[in-house]
């Protein structure tokens, strides 16, 4: 019994892993590029979801993403720090910033946190534009292509990071953290009275989220070879981080990843159709999901579609 259930989950998973590992051998450069940016977005989506598990909505992930991106690019430019170490440094700096920001705002009720995170990303844009000597200003910073432009290597690196995020989320789900995060999200006052220090766990979730978001930023700067403040600190990045998991299904491993695949596809289509405003889909999806499918695609699947299949044998 037990082993047959095991097989049902591990076999598709093994096939998926094999497919992902062999992917660069199967496709051309364009699709490889799409895969890299898709996986990058999955990392952002899953990282956002980690924080969301404590009931906090960050609308400023772009701030952490940009900090990671700039830290890594500037450390390369000034001190010739190797890109992968730079990404790690970017991740750590973003984590450090999240501790500071988290302790200031996460002891407050959620709405203050959300507003502060927007302000944080926007404030960074202003700081970056106004201090060109340190940050490169509006002209941005450029770096040589990652791994000498070898997309396959870049693909495996970003895939490894995604695997790390998934592993961390899985570990959280298996541990006592899952109970703390869920309790805080569902009722902070009750969690508090049951011995859970809400601020501590919220900050911890924010740190984990910031680490991977910062790492993704560092990767982006080297992969893209060129970053400007308007792009990496952009509201659109922050919105993308939250729309993808909300669409796919919150507080799950598969939800953010599934949401990213679909939204990236829609976005790619709209990008061709409209030169501006392709993020209209983000807004529309947010509104529709909140109104009609609050548990996202996974919730729809579990609640409406799966039962259709299950009821068949009984009829």
């Amino acid at each position: 019994m037990g082993s047959s259930i095991r097989w049902k989950t591990t076999l598709p998973l093994a096939i998926l892993c094999a497919f992902l590992l062999l992917f660069p051998k199967l496709v051309g450069s364009y699709f490889l590029h799409l895969a890299v940016s898709g996986i990058l977005a999955m990392i952002l989506a899953s990282s956002w979801d980690i924080l969301a598990r404590t009931g906090q909505v960050s609308v400023g992930q772009a701030g952490l993403f940009g900090i990671g991106a700039y830290s890594s690019a500037l450390l390369y430019q000034r001190y010739a720090l190797p890109p992968v170490l730079g990404m790690l440094a970017g991740a750590l700096i973003a984590t450090f910033v999240s501790i500071f920001l988290g302790y200031l705002t996460l002891r407050l009720r959620g709405i203050y946190f959300s507003i502060t995170t927007i302000a944080f990303a926007e404030a960074l844009t202003v700081i970056w534009l106004m201090t060109p000597d340190i940050t490169g200003g509006a002209m941005g910073v450029s770096t040589p292509p990652l791994f000498g432009g070898d997309r396959e290597k870049a693909y495996y690196l970003i895939l490894a990071i995604l695997a790390a995020v998934v592993a961390v989320v899985w570990l959280i789900e298996q541990s006592r953290l899952n109970f703390a995060f869920t309790a805080i999200r569902e009722n902070e006052d009750v969690a508090n009275v049951l011995g859970i220090n809400p601020t501590k766990y919220k900050v911890l979730a924010f740190m984990i989220s910031a680490f991977f978001t910062g790492f993704a930023g560092g990767f982006y700067s080297h992969y893209n070879t060129y970053i400007i403040p308007y792009e990496v600190f952009n509201l659109g990045v922050s919105i993308a981080c939250l729309v993808m998991p909300i669409f796919g299904g919150l507080y799950t491993i598969a939800g953010p990843i599934l949401g990213t695949v679909l939204i990236k596809a829609i976005e790619e289509y709209l990008r061709v159709t409209f030169s501006y405003g392709h993020q209209i889909a983000y807004g529309l999806i947010l509104v529709l999901v909140v109104l009609f499918m609050p548990e996202g695609l996974l919730g729809l699947w579990r609640g409406k579609i799966l039962p259709l299949f299950r009821s068949r044998p009984g009829r």
């Binding site: 109970f179 703390a180 869920t182 309790a183 049951l194 011995g195 859970i196």
Partner: peptide, 12 residues
Amino acid sequence: LENVVTGALFGR
């Protein structure tokens, strides 16, 4: 059960 486990995990 999870409700009660939460109390046991963090409350002491």
